[in-house]
Design a protein around this nucleic acid. Structure first.
Lengths: 165, 165
DNA sequence: ACCTGAACACCGTTCAAGT
DNA sequence: ACCTGAACACCGTTCAAGT
């Protein structure tokens, strides 16, 4: 199968969901694709830009689950679910969102929908909370009630947009 | 000067504020301290536990600025300031908070003070937002109004604890 | 107790050279 | 256009051996 940016991304996603970011090296990726490490650099600028491709792919997954008009709290919960599918998903998307915000923010949580400020708030809360949650899974620190806890804090933040007294 | 966990942490902090996490390697640290890399492992279990020592040191810095009774919003702003002093401070403390929550959460933002749920909310929001902010500084993506933006979202979250109608 | 020296098993990236 | 092979400059960690 022809090596493309897409096939590289797909393979990266599969390494990620099985083993996590620690095992996602360019060399490991090349081995899995039966090419030399240097071959990857013809299709992808460097590792960081691969991580951005991954972030965009996760955004697309969330968009497929949640139309642009979806309830923001539901969209935040979907984003969390998608991030959890891939070990260290939150850490990667945090990087992607830092560098290419508009490309990575799900439609239902974008600045167009919620305003720049609240959009940034709910995204950084989600990425921070899920990054912590995923770290805890790895080092198995207790993370019971992570879902409810996150839902409650996301709701607090989003609810505040309906003006207070 | 005698090599200790403390002197290693101090040197790490100085590398961090000057160069960032990318340059904070055990080998680089050893060079700076004029010892062999292997010498570090007598004082510190591994790199991860060094990152936790660093997280605790930043917590102490925040506590020195904010007593346990400080206003939570002011404490969140102080935490942000301390994180910003060290390149990638947020990323490191996010890891530290994941593994040793009670050791790393500043007093004024701890579960004792705000309740487990809101404490976790404000901490993950802060760590997520500052991690994004620091990444943007590195790749110089526009991050104007980062402070005001963060303050607004932190206030939204914290304000919600005074029950709504 | 504390540190050195050498080794093991890795990294990301570049670049001439091949096809 | 697309890939190989070899190289460069690194990593974290372990462990026998020295003092």
């Amino acid at each position: 199968m022809a090596l493309t940016a897409e096939s590289i991304t797909t393979t990266a996603l599969s390494i990620l969901s099985q083993y996590g970011l620690g095992d996602l090296s360019m060399r490991r990726l090349a081995r899995e694709l039966d090419v030399q490490p240097s071959a990857l650099y013809w299709h992808v600028k460097d590792k960081q830009s691969l991580l951005i491709l991954i972030s965009r792919s996760l955004k697309a997954e969330v968009d497929a689950l949640c139309p642009a008009t979806a309830d923001p709290l539901a969209a935040a919960m979907s984003l969390r679910e998608v991030l959890l599918k891939y070990r260290d998903g939150a850490e990667i998307v945090l990087l992607g969102y830092s560098i290419a915000p508009t490309d990575v923010a799900p439609q239902a949580l974008g600045a167009d929908r919620l305003g720049a400020e609240l959009s940034h708030g709910i995204l950084t809360l989600t990425l921070g909370a899920v990054a912590v949650e995923q770290n805890r899974m790895i080092f198995d620190v207790d993370a019971a009630e992570a879902a409810e806890n996150f839902a409650a804090n996301a709701a607090r933040l989003l609810r505040s947009s309906r003006r207070l007294p």
